[in-house]
Design a protein around this nucleic acid. Structure first.
Lengths: 144, 144
DNA sequence: TATCATCTTGATACGGCTTATCAATTTCAA
DNA sequence: TTGAAATTGATAAGCCGTATCAAGATGATA
């Protein structure tokens, strides 16, 4: 495990400890691979990791990515017929523009929107830990 | 068919005409039910319409809702494991503040955020048809 | 309005994605 | 080191949406 991901590793261990779960070789491997991505599907990760560990099961990948969601490291997003697991660390300021024609995804960030979100939250007594903003529509190509 | 939905009916007929498709009893029934909703799943509509027409097939609902998407009356959006069909005519959106402690959901609206969304979209060549904004965090009560 | 090519429907089989199941294995606190 | 408890891998099962196809409905045409 690269020491660049110490923070996330620590967060995971904390979650595991709190819920009587165990740190396994597979969980370390999957975390390491996951943190290198901005977002990935279980299937894609399965093929990617087949090289380092040919016996790693697809079910384990699904279970582990869902575990990361519980631990606050990942966020699941349903798109098309698949589930994308977003890396929260990268995603912090990445919102999505999604073309419903060709499924293209464009990422963007806007500080002003973030600021207004904070404002709306505090106005309602909330403290935001994460958010999700997706704009659906047609890209210039698909509009015709 | 209620005469309140004349405009949408006309749009549908236009699409049907252009593509050599036919206007059927089922399509009229489903359109009428669909326009009363802001968004609905095929399954939900299936149960809802079972009263008026017990023989209406689920496949027909899926086909017809997808047809509405093609005709520009509806917009499919993947949510959880299901597909929500949004009524395009309903433009008023509410966004959500979701407490991860007690699961409370607070709805809010912010014109400025909507405006900035449009801005980001057009900057990337997109035309937005719908969006989704969810802020996750803790409400004042759960913060302690 | 009767005809009939074409489209649509309803029932259901099918396929893709994700989760449940369970025996064997691994983890980790004592 | 030991053993209770969690995890894994293989795969069955489940869910959602689409494809298939015979039977029925539609609507352009005469």
């Amino acid at each position: 495990m690269a020491n660049t991901h110490v923070k996330e590793m620590k967060a995971l261990k904390e979650h595991l400890g709190k819920h009587q779960l165990k740190l396994t070789r597979q969980r370390e491997l999957i975390l390491s691979a996951f943190l290198r991505q901005e977002h990935i599907t279980a299937e894609a990760m399965y093929h990617q990791l087949a090289k380092s560990d040919p016996h790693l099961g697809l079910a384990t990948i699904y279970r582990t990515l869902n575990l990361f969601c519980d631990a606050g490291l990942a966020q699941a997003r349903h798109f098309g017929s698949q589930t994308q697991y977003d890396n929260i660390a990268h995603k912090g300021h990445h919102d999505h523009l999604i073309c419903t024609g060709c499924q293209k995804i464009v990422e963007f960030e806007n500080e002003e929107i973030e600021r207004l979100q904070e404002e709306m939250a505090s106005k309602n007594g909330f403290t935001i830990t994460t958010h999700r903003l997706e704009l659906y529509g047609l890209c210039s190509r698909c509009r015709h």
